[in-house]
Design a protein around this nucleic acid. Structure first.
Lengths: 118, 118
DNA sequence: AAGTCAGTTTGATGGGCATCAAACTTTTGC
DNA sequence: GCAAAAGTTTGATGCCCATCAAACTGACTT
């Protein structure tokens, strides 16, 4: 189980994140990751109508922009949103984009937030 | 004084807005409009280091994406952010982008420097 | 060892886009 | 009317990018 190289949090650039999310296929992948959490690549791009090599390019674009994190387990690669990093660097941006895409995200709720909600 | 054609609020597409904002020049123009409000085109793109025809293309890109509104008064054209429309359609998105854009990318800076942002 | 599975890389293609330069349009001022 | 100012449009250039197809890699299976 090894992690692939990603940009450090402080190296994530706003314009690159916006550019990454401005492609419909990549936005859809991002939404799926937000809803379902960690997914392998094939699942993330299932029924998107793009060739697997095209999808692979999108995975790379998302990873290099700092939007997703990829780790390999066996012969599968699992992607997940870099939620903490993105929220730290660009507070509210990811939530606004996901909400704008009209598909609410299932965030892990901290104990603190859970208390405040009750 | 006449208004130029713009997309209706409900026709503003998320991916197009993200794409429009993903260009550094257009993002800078957007930030200036957010800070200073309505500005004419030349002022908005002052000292950006791009030719006026290039700037004009960016105005169009921002307008067609639904980010800005343009009205002509005399021989000047004034641009302004479509804040209300954007907030209605994508709540929190514009604010998150503007807030994110205020953070310098690499070195963490003091609040003093952050306030003196150019 | 051979085959399969998951995903990447490479090559080719077509389209879009950021840029500048030059010509054009519209409005204002002399 | 003529010229200047403010943008736009058009043309040219070069780059980047989304896409597919085919070859490749690394890991598991039989």
């Amino acid at each position: 189980m090894r992690l692939l190289p990603h940009p450090a949090t402080e190296d994530i650039e706003l314009t690159e994140v916006l550019r990454a999310l401005s492609d419909p296929v990549r936005l859809e992948i991002t939404i799926r990751l937000a809803i379902a959490g960690e997914m392998n690549c094939t699942t993330a791009a299932d029924h998107l109508g793009v060739h697997k090599s095209t999808a692979s390019h999108h995975y790379r674009a998302l990873r290099e922009a700092g939007v997703v994190e990829t780790k390999q387990e066996g012969r599968l690669k699992y992607m997940s949103l870099r939620r903490t990093d993105l929220d730290a660097r660009f507070p509210g941006l990811l939530d606004a984009v996901l909400h704008a895409a009209n598909r609410p995200s299932r965030r892990p709720v901290s104990a603190h937030q859970a208390d405040a909600r009750a």
